[in-house]
């Protein structure tokens, strides 16, 4: 009696832990089979890379300009105008765009656009028993399906970070122009405050976001079950878990970076 009640109470926690463990195992398997020859995943890798690039570029462009014009652009510009220091907006954009908004908007877009498409695709193959058929044919699904997606999403998210930074700064420029200020001081404070540490921190963070997205979305797609509703549910759970994982990782990473590199927080 006691044990059944305890089982029922802890069942969600237990299944969550089991899932996280399964995802860790999948990560390990993916890394091992990415490195161990043979390497049959070249063409699939290129295909997935182009697929993500094609789907994500426009949503990412719209989103980064919108977010950076609204959140750090307008609000910070309003605040700085009160002190007559609008030229400082460039320095603030190093913190706002390079360190925060570019990586996470990038992760949100890649997870929401490419990640959901991957889960839907793999889930459909699982439902139609294509994955089992592959295994019967002696083709390893991890090596041929998960590894190329994992590598492609890591690379594409990392590269999209640069794209997001460029368009994020465009948002800041629009905010400066809307307030009728010249762009020279913006660039001046931006480049004096920007540091290489910030940039590699941003790129590394973004690449890790891509890895989290790829693993969660592949795992959820490959374990989809239960017919038509199953694939939709898998996509639903995949984005929820990806978002939580990405933001939790963002917090830990940013805190570690800020604490271990105090020189990047100094205002110049």
């Amino acid at each position: 009696m006691v044990s059944t009640v305890a089982d029922r109470a802890f069942a969600p926690a237990k299944s969550l832990l089991e899932e996280v463990g399964d995802m860790m195992i999948l990560t390990g398997k993916t890394m091992v089979s990415a490195l161990r020859p043979p390497y049959p995943y070249g063409s699939e890798f290129v295909g997935q890379f182009l697929f993500a690039l094609r789907l994500c570029w426009l949503p990412l462009l719209i989103s980064t300009v919108a977010v950076s014009y609204g959140a750090p652009g307008l609000q910070a510009a309003n605040f700085l105008i009160l002190f007559g220091a609008l030229d400082r907006l460039g320095g603030f954009f190093v913190l706002a765009i390079i360190r925060e908004f570019a990586p996470f908007v990038c992760a949100i877009i890649v997870a929401g656009v490419a990640g959901t498409a991957i889960t839907a695709d793999l889930g459909a193959r699982k439902i139609r028993e294509e994955l089992d058929a592959l295994q019967v044919l002696g083709v390893d699904p991890v090596k041929n399906l998960v590894v190329p997606r994992f590598l492609a999403l890591m690379l594409v998210t990392g590269l999209f970070d640069i794209f997001a930074i460029i368009f994020g700064i465009t948002g800041g420029l629009i905010a400066t122009l809307v307030n009728g200020a010249p762009l020279g001081p913006f660039w001046a404070t931006f480049f004096t405050n920007a540091s290489t540490t910030d940039l590699w921190g941003s790129l590394l963070k973004c690449t890790m976001f891509g890895a989290i997205t790829a693993i969660v979305c592949c795992y959820k797609g490959m374990t989809a079950s239960g017919g038509a509703e199953g694939v939709g549910k898998a996509v639903n759970q995949a984005v929820v878990i990806t978002f939580l994982g990405v933001f939790a990782f963002n917090y830990v990473f940013t805190q570690t970076l800020l604490a271990t590199h105090p020189e990047i927080t100094v205002i110049r």
């Binding site: 949503p59 656009v113 695709d121 889930g123 199953g230 939709g232």
Partner: peptide, 17 residues
């Protein structure tokens, strides 16, 4: 079933933008 998955993914793109 594939259509449901694709529709879910598409709605996510539009919602985020």
């Amino acid at each position: 079933p594939v259509g449901v998955g694709t529709a879910t993914a598409k709605s996510m793109v539009m919602n985020i933008v």
